[in-house]
Write a protein that binds this DNA or RNA. Structure first.
Lengths: 231, 231
DNA sequence: ACCTGAACACCGTTCAAGT
DNA sequence: ACCTGAACACCGTTCAAGT
């Protein structure tokens, strides 16, 4: 029963690393990357700026940590409804990331920043490992594991970074907003000079009736098909 | 011969929009995104900050413009060595972007930022149009043009963003640096607990003998294969 | 060990004023 | 029309000092 205050440790610690990270994510969700300032953090947590640096380091390091936290959570959730084929598992991972970005819009940009700066950091490694295992389960020869996995990962990260929900207003997205956005994009395409942009013009119609999620999965299916052809 | 100073226009204009953009790109190449400050620009151009805003607007807008300029140049160059099959044309576009990022390292991050904020801006449209035409030339049915093109574009942008050359020191990259980097990454993988990261562990060997460019093209080949299977 | 908060250096942007 | 540059508001980070 030595559980009583060991030594005369003053035990004033009232601020935790986790608490700071959670608050940071809240600020990011509410105001994007610009919403996370050291001052906003200290205000919300009723503390001084030094405390932040003591617990989590630089603002940039905090941003890294926040990203890793959210991604790890996204990779950890396992719905496991559909039969557990490798193809389905890959889809689950991909959609998990997709949804994480829909929920935390700042992730799209920050993910890109982070991958550029440190391509083989914990984020990529985590995603790569999850995808890679399923690639192996697909039964393709070991010699092509790397190409197969990296093509999938690159596609997923590329697609997911470019899937924006609502950039500026940084709030909840209504279906109306979304429709207006697609409408506007589709119209912008049609206004392009058909002589200069024949292709864009030709497919502008497919824009209005286009579902991001569905399109995203169609791309994965296409790549999976290419992979199994490697066998 | 009305070429003589028309009217008594004072003609003090000595600073051009183009000049500012070029200098901005120089600063970016030399010091990354952090190297482009309004103050550094005014110093190099021997002018006041107001002049910058007058010609190119906000720092953020200048960054957009610089990106568009570099990307447009990358898409414009046509080597045209190999026979002009659609597959080869797609490879040329992809490698053009790859090389542009190798030359202007800040592009990787900025591209991602820009695509997230405005997914259907001039940059994406330009790339999409170029890729799309070749997809059409591939002879796949119109119904799948969009999936085919967007899968390629997403892969290319994802892969190219994650291909880093040398992030921090922001200088020229020596082969030695590169080898050290790959060596370090490969070793980091092997140090991962094989129980937690069996896949990464299994392919860590392929890392050392891996050529970014080759790998990039292998991914494209894989996707092209998937696309032609749609026929 | 944990935290405070004033101080510092450095940002982007504006705008009255000049030519 | 084109440009100057002081002024402003707002950053991230440090660090001596407190408990």
């Amino acid at each position: 029963m030595a559980t009583r205050a060991r030594r005369t440790q003053r035990r004033r610690q009232v601020l935790s690393r986790e608490q700071i990270i959670d608050t940071a994510i809240e600020l990011l969700d509410a105001g994007g990357a610009g919403g996370l300032t050291v001052r906003a953090l200290t205000e919300r947590l009723a503390t001084g700026s030094g405390a932040i640096y003591y617990h989590v380091g630089t603002r940039d390091e905090l941003l890294d940590t926040a990203t890793e936290t959210v991604i790890a959570a996204a990779l950890a959730t396992e719905p496991a409804r559909a039969p557990a084929t490798p193809e389905n598992e890959i889809r689950v991972v991909a959609l998990g990331l997709f949804d994480a970005i829909a929920e935390h819009q700042w992730l799209a940009t920050r993910l890109a920043v982070q991958l550029t700066r440190n391509p083989w950091g914990p984020v990529t490694v985590g995603i790569f490992e999850k995808i890679g295992r399923q690639v192996r389960a697909l039964g393709v020869p070991q010699a092509v594991w790397f190409v197969a996995a990296s093509t999938l990962v690159h596609y997923i990260l590329g697609a997911v970074s470019q899937t924006r929900i609502d950039g500026y207003t940084s709030g909840v997205e209504t279906d109306e907003d979304r429709e207006k956005f697609l409408e506007a994009a589709s119209m912008a395409w049609q206004e392009l000079d058909p002589a200069d942009y024949p292709f864009m013009h030709a497919i502008s119609g497919q824009m209005r009736e286009h579902d991001d999620r569905e399109q995203f999965l169609a791309g994965i299916a296409l790549i999976l098909d290419g992979i199994t052809n490697l066998r």
